[in-house]
Design a protein around this nucleic acid. Structure first.
Lengths: 203, 203
DNA sequence: TTACGATTTAACCATTTGATTAAACCATCT
DNA sequence: AGATGGTTTAATCAAATGGTTAAATCGTAA
């Protein structure tokens, strides 16, 4: 058994693949570009991951659950609702600031017919839907319907995720540089809780 | 001069290209698929549009302004603010219901380095930014800063557009079929104005 | 009808790109 | 040292894909 190199090659490849797939999606990514970024011969990608699909899946299997976890972390604590929402935006936007390509990666992956991914949702642990049902039941006191809840959840995600998808467009319209945009997102952590909390029906 | 066929071939090609590029983006689209969908030999695409880039641009040049128009139509009337917002969501969501692939198309186009598109923004008529500045000046009475306004505008777009980008994900989490989703968006036309109007600082 | 130019097609070309192979490399063990 | 087996590379392949070309087709006008 050979001792692994200082920087495990397999992981270097995965990291490079993550980088490239996140930015360009499956169709836009090139095996050669991934190899170059990993500083490694192209044949090594196949040696470790067999083919492009499998390499992509390796990336997807670590990124998708991370995103789901971020999307559902709001249901994991027992804080008062207002605190929960506030915490959610703070944490979620921070996560997106440091992983700003993930939303595009997820959206573009699911847009293409990369199925067998509904599969991953069911296997997700914790299951988003289970968490959401539980949360919903707890809110029954205020007579919130399932549809109200879905709308609320859609709002939550829309407000936090969309600005990272539309950054190229928005930054251009308003002539914002990266720093401007960063500070816009920073302020958003405070603005969004206020906005969303107002929208909740008082019990 | 030849009389155009019953169904102008050039337009049939453009329509097919629109369909395919909208669903799959530039990288995912295949010239052969476009030709097949148009019911036409592949060489004809090159005859009319020279190469893939130019064909893509032909699509982009009609889709992008349509989306910008939809995004800025809110600034074009002189209704009271509440009416304006309500009208915007109604119209914008209806537009998205009938053009549900446009948001993904725009996002994926701008994500790839398809530059020279900042160019298109400036040439856009009416210019989004000019309209927005004008609107902003009118609101000065309530002391709204430019940053407040950008946040507001981001909210407006996030809430209406994101659900169409994330449909594959959301529909899976909540096990919604197309009809369910449609009715969800329908109700959104009423829910969103209430939500956003509450967020506006009273003068 | 014939000639002409615009339109359309089938066949082909060149490049890109994902994938394979055979050989080289190198650390460890005997 | 020499054998062994995992790792890496250079060279090559085959399929996919964007693009080209030369000939066929078709409507129109002379």
């Amino acid at each position: 058994m050979r001792i692994p190199k200082e920087e495990n090659t397999e992981k270097k490849i995965l990291a490079a693949a993550r980088e490239v797939f996140h930015r360009k999606g499956f169709e836009g990514a090139r095996m050669q570009e991934i190899a170059d970024l990993a500083g490694v011969n192209k044949a090594l990608l196949h040696y470790y991951y067999r083919d492009k699909q499998k390499l992509f899946h390796a990336v997807f299997r670590e990124t998708f659950p991370a995103m789901i976890r971020e999307m559902t972390v709001i249901f994991s604590t027992d804080e008062p609702l207002e605190t929960k929402i506030s915490n959610f935006f703070n944490r979620h936007i921070s996560f997106l600031q440091q992983n700003s390509y993930i939303p595009y990666f997820i959206i573009s992956s699911l847009q293409q017919n990369h199925q067998e991914l509904p599969e991953m949702l069911k296997n997700a642990n914790p299951s988003p839907y289970a968490l959401i049902r539980k949360q919903l039941d707890q809110e029954q006191r205020s007579g919130i319907t399932e549809e109200d809840f879905i709308q609320f959840y859609l709002n939550l995600l829309s407000l936090s995720v969309f600005p990272f998808l539309a950054k190229p467009l928005i930054a251009n319209i308003f002539d914002l540089n990266d720093e401007d945009y960063q500070s816009l997102m920073e302020k958003r952590k405070k603005v969004l809780p206020e906005l969303l909390i107002k929208s909740i029906p008082k019990k």
